[in-house]
Design a protein around this nucleic acid. Sequence first.
RNA 1: GGCCCCGUAGUACAAUGGAUAGUAUAAGAGUUUCCGAAGCUCCAGAUCCAGGUUCGAUUCCUGGCGAGGCCA
Length: 596
Amino acid sequence: MSFISIIQSAAINSLANLSGQTFSENDFQVNETKPEFEGDYTIVLFALVKTLKKSPEALGKELGEQIIKDDPHFFAAFNVLKGFLNLTIANKPLTSLLKGNYSDENFGKKAANHQKVMVEYSSPNTNKPLHLGHLRNNFLGWSVAEILKANGNDVVKTSIVNDRGIHICKSMIAWQMFSGGKTPASENEKGDHFVGDYYVKFNDEYKKEVAELIHSGKTKEEAEKEAPVMKKTQQMLLDWEQGNPDVRELWKTMNRWVYKGFDETYQRIGSDFDKTFYESNTYLLGKDFVKEGLAKNILFKKEDGSVWIDLSDKNLDEKLVLRSDGTSVYITQDIGLAKEKFEEYHLDKSIYVIGDEQLHHMKVLKEIIRKLGMPFADKIFHLSYGMVELTTGKMKSREGTVVDADDLIDEMVATAEQHTKELGKVNDFSEEELKELYETLGLGAMKFYLLRVDPKKRMIFNPEESIDFHGFTGPFVQYTYARIQSILRKVGEEKLSVVSDDFSGSSLLPLERQLIIMLEKYGSIISDAGNEMNPSAIANYVFNLAKLYNSFYTEHSVANAESDEKKQLRLSLSVMTSNIIKSGLQLLGINAPQKM
RNA sequence: GGCCCCGUAGUACAAUGGAUAGUAUAAGAGUUUCCGAAGCUCCAGAUCCAGGUUCGAUUCCUGGCGAGGCCA
């Protein structure tokens, strides 16, 4: 039971004893006490003033006295300021909490509750490599999945690969036209970059042809339609759909190159999937429900034969679900895939990590599913995240301002290397250990930078600031962890069993109290982060914890503590802090190094 | 045109309707005989505008202004 809920129950109990009336936790607020005031937790009294018809000051005094009387073991003191009742927790519950949990590496995590949750994330197109936006998606999806696990859920990570369509045909056409048979192997290039280059070549060629056609008197619209390279591409898409063996073979080959490239990146950033769906397998799904929907009059046919659904009662327009030529649109297959997911995995919840430009699409998807009477409409959740912008403006592939994921990772890791060398603290590391450390630090910096912001908000990526290893950054937190490990190596965890480990009656200095209270909060941070699917709550928490520990560390010596009992207490504090930092970083996909 | 999101120090981000709006950076001043200075301490600086609801509004409502996104 968390401190907050202990205080809530205590207040409910004491309010009943005081007034004879019944209260619930919704009738008043319990907050942490602001640092400038005396106390640990604060009951905000204003909401109670009306029902109890007392002045805030009088009520605060009576309630404070009652609470201490009712539970003198947990509460040590109180004070009232305006409408705020500040409560101080006794030392004993704090030291007991520390003693009972300092070595528990799973502190704050919940036991399994058997909720089955699917998290779909990453979901790339196969015509070009991953960029900065994908990194936000991947870090977010992976972290949310881990946070949900920490809350006891059974999580299935999945990705839908958009491996067919006009975009990949563009790369294929360009490769046929310009490659002269080159391959990623022959060029020693990562496959996704290789294929992406041909996508760029396609656009260059297309632009050139359009310009020529306009020059020869065509309108812009005509030129865009008639450009030979575009016509070839469209023909290729038709050939693909009809199963033309040559086209299919080329398609397979080029996609294989791309997957190999993606896999390298995924492995490096730690993304993994329990199940991968391919659009080439799912794009025909969903046509069944069209028949069914027409029969039930939920869908209707227009004169040209196209099939629609009317969502005007939900403040949405009519939406096309089947073209007049009988081909489906994105949303048709999305409905089919949604159904397949629920049927195959018996999900309690299906989360889609997709950018907020798809808010409308996902809203329409949910609404159609609901109208069709499928039972899982309310179990679909769009975890939308804002676009990552650059200090120089938006990323635009046509303008070449896209930040490539692999390049960015390389840059971060190189910066980590440079910093580490300048500081020269790990001269005893082997080449391999060093390499691993640079990855840990570079990726840690990047993940932390992208996850510390509320996912729903769009954010600005500043390359210079992101590689800063000071302040609110991953390496700051990692440094704190490494430093604690250094203490533990020196002072030795064995001391924990040698020295009398009974510090439960110890007095506590302010920083020691604050640390214990902050450590205790970790469990509610995990559940908040889970409920809101928001890793930034964890990032903020581990940063604040690291900061508080650093202050504690400069003020109070662990090794040369005033007494054995104090040493014991501070060692336990250090162990528990480092366990929680490690655990919190792990939920963000960040490793905690022993030395750095 | 319609719908949705967002406006907080120079900059980037916080703040379930609660106390003097936090944090980081950048600027300034300190801090290594002592557990790791990628640290710590001090110092300054902000809620787009106008109304409304409330004991109390960065938060909720209305209207402006500004910036994004989506649907045709």
